Computed example of a mutant assay.
Amino acid sequence: MNNQRSTNSDEASQKLKQETVANETEQREAPFNETYHRGPVLLRGQMIPSESSTARLLNEENSTDWLHHDPWRVLRIQSEFVDGFGALAEVGPAVSIFGSARIKPDEPMYKAAQEMGTMVAQRDIAVITGGGPGIMEAANRGASEAGGVSVGLGIELPHEQGINEWVNLGLNFRYFFVRKTMFVKYSSGFVICPGGFGTLDEMFELLTLVQTHKVRYMPVALFGSEYWEGLIDWLRGPVSDHGMISQIDPSLFVVTDDPEEAVAVATGAIQRDRQN
């Protein structure tokens, strides 16, 4: 009899402990009374919205602030990639010519860029530029006058005048990184003429991609040795001496003052592919 009472007491005690643990666990593990799922996103507590995504979609909206929110920017970025890929997919072999928008038509550098655009087009290769004035206009002009494909990839800037008149296939981008992707994806060689921050940005991003093997090797010609001399001395001197680049990295580009040599370098990979 005593054994039965002891067993009952032990069972009651065990049950009480289990209920106590369950209550403590519930209090410890359930700080929020409600869970809301918005697609793959889980929301609880103060993060739960007052209305569903469908309700917000169907609400009459007078404010246009949503146009400037990051999710909408993602869609705009996506649309720029889609438009760029769609427009350039059938351009064929192409060479990009970079350079300053500030070069005037009566300057020797403009004439040289125009000549290079002509020579590229005569090889049945498309010319791609940033679509603006200066060096870009000159290269597009040379390609267009030679009956070639003259591509301009413009960028939305306050001081730019839009796509130049010598472009026969043009796109305008909001975002620099989308535009630069198009240059690299659809070009098989590059001529870099004198230019400022924009030209340097494009040049170094290209060289970085080649250096790190993110893209296949692409020939690069720097046109205008006097202009590039100081930069090259710095790269081969302090930058290399401090171990910031390897000894072979300066060989990723060729410096020349000859438009014909610059074009030969930039179109070299395309010509070799054609021969094979």
Rank of each mutant, 00 (worst) to 15 (best):
L206M: 14
A30S: 14
E11Q: 14
Y217N: 14
N172V: 13
E19G: 02
S251Q: 10
K111H: 08
R56S: 11
I103K: 09
L200N: 13
P31K: 03
G45D: 05
T208E: 03
I232C: 08
G86W: 08
A22I: 10
M182G: 14
M119Q: 15
V41A: 02
M203C: 13
S246M: 00
G148K: 02
S187Q: 08
G243W: 04
E205A: 07
D249L: 00
S240N: 04
H37Y: 15
V21F: 10
I192S: 09
T118G: 02
Y186M: 06
G154W: 01
L157T: 03
I128Q: 02
Y217W: 12
M136I: 13
S53M: 12
S251C: 01
A139F: 10
D249S: 05
E29F: 07
G134M: 13
R102A: 11
V184Y: 12
V74T: 15
A266I: 05
A121M: 13
G45F: 01
D106E: 14
F197R: 13
G198D: 08
S187L: 06
V82N: 03
R123H: 07
A121Y: 12
Q18A: 15
P40Q: 04
L153K: 04
E61D: 07
P250G: 08
L157E: 04
N2S: 06
T20E: 14
F253P: 13
L209H: 01
Q14K: 14
W166G: 00
V74N: 13
D258F: 06
D83R: 12
F176R: 06
V178Y: 04
L200I: 05
A138I: 03
G230V: 10
K104V: 00
E19S: 07
T20P: 00
M203T: 15
V263Y: 04
Q271R: 14
S240G: 00
F98A: 07
M244K: 09
E34Y: 05
T256I: 12
F223R: 01
Q27I: 14
F197P: 03
V127I: 06
I125M: 04
E261N: 00
S50P: 01
E260L: 02
G268I: 10
A87M: 13
L16C: 05
S225I: 07
T64E: 02
S251Y: 10
I128D: 00
P250I: 06
P49Q: 12
F32T: 03
H37R: 15
T64G: 00
Q78M: 14
Y186A: 10
L43S: 04
N2P: 00
S225P: 02
M119I: 02
T129P: 08
N172K: 11
D65H: 09
M47H: 07
G268Q: 12
L16G: 12
N3E: 09
I103N: 04
